[in-house]
Every structure is written in C-alpha cells, then in structure tokens.
C-alpha cells in the first residue's frame, strides 16, 4: 500500500471541507473493496477520510412506506434487522449473502453502491426496488444513478447519506454466487410494486440493468412461465475466466424465474 494521510471527521461538513482541501482524497466507508484495492497498489489516494464517526449516516428506519438505510450501515445490520426482514425480506436476504460474515461486519451499503461493482448485490436491490439515493446535496432515483461499470451519477466530492427503499407488494432476490468471491455471477432482483413490476440484473452485464421485456411480460402474467424464452442479450453480457457471455445470459433467465417463483410463493 502506498502512503497516505488518514482523517476521521465527525460531521458531514468536516468531510466536505476535507474533500475540498485535500489533493486526491478518497472516502473510506467499510474499506472492504477500497483497502483491498490499495493493497494491490491499484489505487493511491493522498488521503483517506474515514466516515465511521460521522453522525447521522448509519442506521435503519422503517415506516409504512419506506425502508431507509444510512450509508454507513453494515451488511450484517441489514441482514439481521427484524424490521427489514418484515418490510422487505428480500433485502435482508440479499444483505446476508454478500461476501462472508466477516466482510458483512464491515462492508457498508453506501460503499457498495458508491463503488458500483458490476457484480455487487446491492445495486440490484436499489434498481429492482426503485430506491432513491440521498446524498449531501440531492436525491437521485436509482434509474438515473447507476451508469455502468464502476460508474455512478455521483459528482466529485458528493457523499451518499442514505438509501430510501419503497416497500413493494412482494420481492425476491436470487443469485448464482461465484463460489470463491461470492460476488454475483448473476443476480436477479424482482419486485412487484404499485408502479409495476421491476426486474434488475447484476453480475451479468457491465453494470446493473433492468430487463424491461421481462417486466412487461410479468405485468400481464406474474409467473415464471410468463418469462420463458425471454433472454438477456448475449453480446452485452460479461465474459471472464468464470463464465462465458452465453452462460451468463442463460443464468439470467434461470435466476429471474427462481426470483419470480420466490415472489409468488
């Protein structure tokens, strides 16, 4: 790891002041991706701004309409929250399958969606549920937030404060994990909402995306059979040592059907 300076501010104002002043700072949330990247010398920030002491950006609250999760809330807290399990069980389920228990104790939802790894789980929940990403300066609908591989709508020095998930009528997440990393080889989040059916796919393409053909079919007939034969475009799928594009496209259909069956059940 290259040298850097470390800061631990207590308020968002202090964070923004540091971001404005420092040369090439990076925000440190749980560090489960950033520190690993820095150890490989693939990132060399001048300064790390640790958010662990910043007030008001961690914790879970649930009301009749929404589940709101603070950016610094760790995966374990979401996975083990009785309130989340009651309001959106698929969200608690998803959080409980990120990485391993040790990673879930440190990794955060804000860190995950700020990084927007194409195989991360949380982007599928945000896009699938039509969540709103609230930053220190504005509210961004998930549909506008995710911009492809490791790219988001976040501006330089913008900080995620919380994520607001509207409670759906029903939802389910199914993923085929890479057996070593447990990142999604393909993960599909299906939600039945007042505004219609949403299907979000992670791991398969260069970034999380919606399967609108499946959404249309499911709106007419919400059953696994209704999406039979609807496949993700092979030419847009990722290909790596773990799986070919064809395999990822095929997995997308399988995971989507399992998720739909999970919502209906």
């Amino acid at each position: 790891m290259y040298q850097f300076e470390y800061h631990r501010p207590k308020t968002l104002d202090e964070v923004t002041a540091l971001l404005a002043r420092l040369e090439s700072p990076k925000i440190l949330a749980g560090g489960m991706t950033l520190l690993a990247t820095m150890k490989q010398r693939l990132a060399a920030p001048s300064d790390l701004i640790d958010l662990q002491d910043v007030t008001g950006i961690a914790g879970i609250s649930v009301d009749a309409k929404n589940v709101t999760i603070g950016a610094m809330t760790c995966h374990h807290d979401v996975a083990s929250s009785k309130d989340v399990a009651k309001a959106i069980p698929a969200l608690a389920y998803l959080a409980g399958r990120i990485g391993d228990p040790l990673v879930r104790h440190r990794g955060t939802i804000g860190g995950s969606i700020a990084n927007n790894d194409p195989s991360a789980d949380y982007p599928a929940a945000c896009l699938g549920l039509g969540a709103t990403i609230v930053t220190n300066s504005r509210e961004i609908p998930a549909d506008d937030y995710f911009r492809g591989m490791f790219e988001t709508a976040l501006k330089e020095n913008e900080i995620i404060v919380k994520i607001v998930f509207p409670i759906p009528q029903g939802a389910a997440y199914q993923k085929f994990p890479n057996p070593a990393s447990r990142y999604a080889m393909v993960g599909v989040f299906v939600a039945k909402t007042a505004a219609g059916v949403r299907v979000a796919v992670t791991g398969a393409g260069p970034g999380v995306f919606r399967m609108t053909a499946m959404e249309t079919a499911l709106a007419k007939n919400f059953s696994a059979a209704a999406i039979d034969g609807i496949t993700a475009p092979v030419e847009e799928m990722l290909q790596d040592m773990h799986a070919s594009s064809e395999y990822r496209a095929a997995l997308t259909s399988v995971m989507a059907k399992r998720a739909v069956a999970g919502v209906s059940a």
Binding site: Y6, R8, L28, G31, M32, L35, A36, K39, L48, D50, Q52, H76, D100, P101, L102, V103, H105, R106, A180, S181
Partner: peptide, 29 residues
Amino acid sequence: CDTSQCGACVVHVDGKAVKSCTVLAMQAA
C-alpha cells in the same frame, strides 16, 4: 492470503469478527 479471503487474520473489533488484514490500525483506534 492477505486479500481478505482466507480468514486466518480474524479478530474481534468492538465485539464483531473482522478480517484484520483489511482493517487499518487507525480505523481500530
């Protein structure tokens, strides 16, 4: 492994098990 996969470095920080190869000493101050 030094890459936060193998778990040989697990310790408890504030009561929670974590991989100490992927936590800065300063984060645990």
